[in-house]
């Protein structure tokens, strides 16, 4: 059963990673992905909106997919919402397994799937005061598709 959190607060990579291995001796590796707010094109801030209720359900379903496809000993997905500044961490994916390939592959799968299957929307703010909604990217759909249905 994965640990899935949707929160405004920043997460602690070290503490979350420790939760996946402490008190057990069967974990051979933990893979991590941290998504960070980038400052492209003069971006000043980014606000993430989500669908409370559905977001948690969608992330849990995506994590359950990862757990059914790879032999994981643990899995953590934390996605923030609210206003982020460049450099702020947005999303954390951790996967733990006996062996590296399952951990690394499932981590990549999770971030690919949650980009196209979890109800979050990014609005960008620029230094000149303009704002715009981020459009979905075809390359994200392609990244999701490489894992099959």
């Amino acid at each position: 059963m994965a640990r899935v959190l949707v929160q405004r607060e920043v997460f602690d990579l070290g503490a979350e990673s420790a939760l996946l291995s402490e008190g057990r001796t069967d974990v051979g590796g933990i893979a991590s992905f941290v998504g960070i707010c980038r400052a492209d094109d003069g971006l000043a801030a980014m606000t993430l909106e989500h669908y409370p209720g559905m977001t948690e359900r969608a992330l849990a379903a995506i994590a359950a997919q990862a757990e059914s496809r790879w032999p994981l000993t643990g899995c953590t997905v934390i996605h923030r919402h609210g206003r982020m500044l460049p450099g702020d961490p947005i999303v954390l994916v951790l996967t733990a397994s006996r062996h590296r390939i399952a951990a690394l592959e499932s981590c990549a799968f999770l971030i690919d799937w949650l980009k196209t299957k979890a109800p979050f929307w990014k609005a960008e703010e620029f230094a000149d005061g303009t704002t715009r909604w981020v459009d979905a990217k075809a390359e994200d759909d392609a990244a999701t598709a490489r894992w099959g249905a």
Binding site: Y51, K115, A118, P119, F120, W133
Partner: peptide
């Protein structure tokens, strides 16, 4: 029922 643009999280 909810309506929204294609999602852009991650």
């Amino acid at each position: 029922v909810a309506f929204f643009p294609p999602v852009t999280g991650g």
